[in-house]
Simulated scan of single mutants.
Amino acid sequence: MRRLKALLTDLDGTLYREARYEAEIKRLTLEIVAEHLGVSIDEARRRLEEARRKLVTLTLSLEEVGVPRERFYEELSRRLRYRELLKPDPRIAELLNEVRRRGYKVAIITNSGRPHALRTMEALGVPLNAVDALVTSSDVSRPKIDPEPYVKGLRLLSVEACEALYMGDRVEGEVKPAKELGMTTVLVSGTPVESPWVDFVIDSPFKVLGVLEELEARPHQRT
């Protein structure tokens, strides 16, 4: 195989998990959607669940039910108590810096809007300069599961899909599109998963270094 040159990774649910933070985002999502549409919380939940059955991701589902994603993420970033719900985790920045120290480029590809993504990273203690590129739903016309964010990330890193490893926490929502583009894929999951879209399964993002080492040990294709 061709030598890998880059790691593209999801942010939420992949580089970190925090149950209280996730629960508050779900609560605020229903609150914001209900207010925007002028419906009850229960009706907002019903509409979002129906949209997600078809579109998989929250970000795509928001626009399906009539809530512009930019407006949603701006409002979410105003209401969410980031520093109360997220604690700095120096291991994340250390991981990203170590991947780069080993010669790989790194990009975060997230469906969060840029204001929300930046405040999440700040609360986690991950500076923007810990990565070579950040692609959010604010930066593309169509977020994941569309290929556009992945393609933009690859372009910003100046690498081809076959030279990149993608790490995410959902098969259908993000790993599958990366695999379809030609990337090697790793799923962060606490349970075993068998899927044609998944090349590796790890139970912690910090084990991605081992995946990179395993891939480096394989014979490389000459270019």
Rank of each mutant, 00 (worst) to 15 (best):
E216D: 14
M183N: 07
E18Y: 08
L165H: 00
P88Q: 03
T14H: 06
M183H: 04
E84S: 13
L55M: 11
L181D: 11
A164S: 02
Y73M: 04
S158V: 10
P88Y: 08
I92Q: 10
R71T: 14
R46A: 10
L4M: 10
E213D: 04
V159L: 00
M167W: 04
Y73E: 07
G173M: 06
I108K: 00
A161N: 03
E24Q: 05
N129P: 03
R71S: 04
S195I: 05
L86W: 04
L154R: 05
K152H: 07
K26D: 11
V33C: 10
L86H: 00
V159P: 10
T9G: 01
L154K: 06
R79N: 06
I202D: 13
F200H: 13
E49P: 14
D132L: 11
T223N: 10
K152L: 11
R83Q: 10
Q221Y: 11
R47Y: 00
T110Y: 11
V106D: 04
V188C: 08
V151Q: 09
E31A: 09
Y150R: 04
S158H: 10
E75T: 02
S40F: 01
E216N: 12
A133Q: 05
R53T: 02
L4Q: 02
R222C: 13
W197A: 13
R81L: 13
R2Q: 13
G113A: 12
K152T: 07
S195D: 03
E75G: 07
A44G: 10
Y82R: 13
E49M: 07
P205E: 12
K105I: 01
L215C: 12
I108L: 06
G103H: 12
K26W: 13
P177Q: 08
D203A: 02
L154N: 08
S77M: 03
I108G: 06
S40V: 04
V126F: 08
P205G: 04
E148T: 00
G66C: 05
E122H: 08
T29A: 13
H116E: 03
E22M: 09
G210S: 10
S195C: 03
A161E: 05
K152Q: 12
V56T: 12
R52G: 12
E172A: 07
E94C: 03
E216S: 14
M167P: 08
V106P: 14
K144M: 07
V131N: 11
R71P: 07
R27G: 13
S138L: 15
R222L: 15
T59A: 08
R52M: 15
E63F: 03
D42I: 09
I32L: 05
R83D: 14
D89E: 02
L8Y: 08
P143C: 01
G190D: 14
L4I: 05
Y21M: 01
F72T: 09
A19G: 14
P127M: 06
G113F: 08
S40P: 15
R27M: 10
I25W: 09
V175A: 01
V198L: 05
P115V: 05
